[in-house]
Design a protein around this nucleic acid. Structure first.
Lengths: 215, 215
DNA sequence: CTTATATTTATACAAACGTATAACAATAAG
DNA sequence: CTTATTGTTATACGTTTGTATAAATATAAG
């Protein structure tokens, strides 16, 4: 009995690319890099494996696109929310800390994905470029908030000191993000956010209020 | 022309296991998880692939052993050095910060390796156990130094506060370690150590001196 | 309604994978 | 010196991998 050719509907290139990227992220996040095979990805996306080569030059380019998508998603989820340009910079800083240390930004899937990609950075210059760009982008945004927050407190740091503070705040946030995502049951609810706000505050010499406590 | 069977010398089980583990770490660190195949590992260790199954139940167990070895190596390199029980706890704390943020602990290879393993943690409970144990072990050692360092400064923190401080210091160190290893050219020599000491000091409310500055 | 286009499926293929097993030879034991 | 042991090499096997190519069909164009 020969099975009939499966029916299908045509989709836009954008939809298909998105679906394939999403399937790739799902697999790497759930089962690790080794599970992200072209057949596995195609099955997860509900298509056959030939489609991958139709939309991407090869598996490597799909992985590359998935890495970019994941990092953009992470950055957006961290920085999103109402602009609040009227609110003090310290307030916006606290918002970022909070977003960074709560799901979906800090989650086993997001951290696992990120780790898998980071392991690829060493052998692939394109992947390294994504990593580098993502790091500097986030740190620069942080620095752009630290400067006015210090000004509000009456301090005008030198460029060297500002750079050091941005590196340090970035590191605490990254470290807490990492640990919260990798060991989700090791910390109480809100514990990491609280520690993050206190630590960033201590490093900057400011007091940050928990944006979750406001009405 | 049939090539003759290659000559070999017998080695102790310990030597062989070590060589295979070292080869595994070299490959994952240099070319990523995907490159750590049984044939690649055997070639790197200078043996044939059959030996792997002779010393390990399968590839998974070799990976597991390599993960353990890497984390033990990392922890030892961080905590090593003269005991200095006579020196103040703050001094020992500074030593740990310094060791954590300089090679070989903070290096592209060490960080890349660690990331590859972390990606496996999600699907393999044994790998997760290694991660969890390593994290708590380091944090506990940190906490055991933070307490007396605060006492020296005349402060006696509550257990809750002590826990929060250990989590925070661990996070800064981890974050800086990560960024220094993943982007080795992004920071000046000694910059991360300096930032690490300042940040840990700010979080604890202490002043840490750079142990590299002493005679 | 007919035709053309190109998205999608289906199949094939060589290479590489982890594992299993048999043959060999270095070393220890007698 | 001879024998037994077992560390080590060598080879084979079935699966899975990424890629290439041909066939089919959903959709747009005329």
């Amino acid at each position: 009995m020969d099975s009939p050719r499966r029916s299908f509907t045509r989709e836009s290139a954008e939809n298909r690319r998105e679906a394939l990227i999403r399937a790739t992220l799902t697999l790497i996040g759930r089962k690790g890099v080794q599970a992200a095979t072209v057949r596995g990805i195609a099955a997860e996306a509900g298509v056959t494996l030939g489609l991958i080569r139709h939309y991407f030059e090869g598996k490597d380019e799909l992985i590359y696109a998935a890495y970019q998508a994941h990092m953009i998603q992470l950055t957006d989820a961290t920085m999103e929310g109402p602009r609040q340009s009227d609110k003090p910079a310290a307030h916006q800083l606290a918002r970022i800390v909070r977003a960074s240390l709560t799901p979906p930004v800090s989650s086993p899937k997001a951290v696992g994905l990120w780790a898998g990609f980071l392991n690829m950075v060493q052998r692939d210059p394109r992947m390294a470029e994504v990593h580098s760009r993502t790091y500097y982008d986030f740190r620069d945004r942080l620095q752009a908030l630290i400067a006015p927050a210090l000004e509000e407190a009456g301090e005008t740091p030198t460029p060297e000191r500002l750079r050091a503070l941005a590196i340090a705040c970035n590191a605490v946030i990254d470290g807490l993000w990492l640990e919260g995502g990798a060991l989700p049951d090791a910390f109480g609810p809100g514990e990491l956010v609280s520690i993050g706000l206190t630590s960033v505050g201590a490093i900057l010499g400011l007091t940050l209020y928990d944006p979750g406590e406001e009405a």
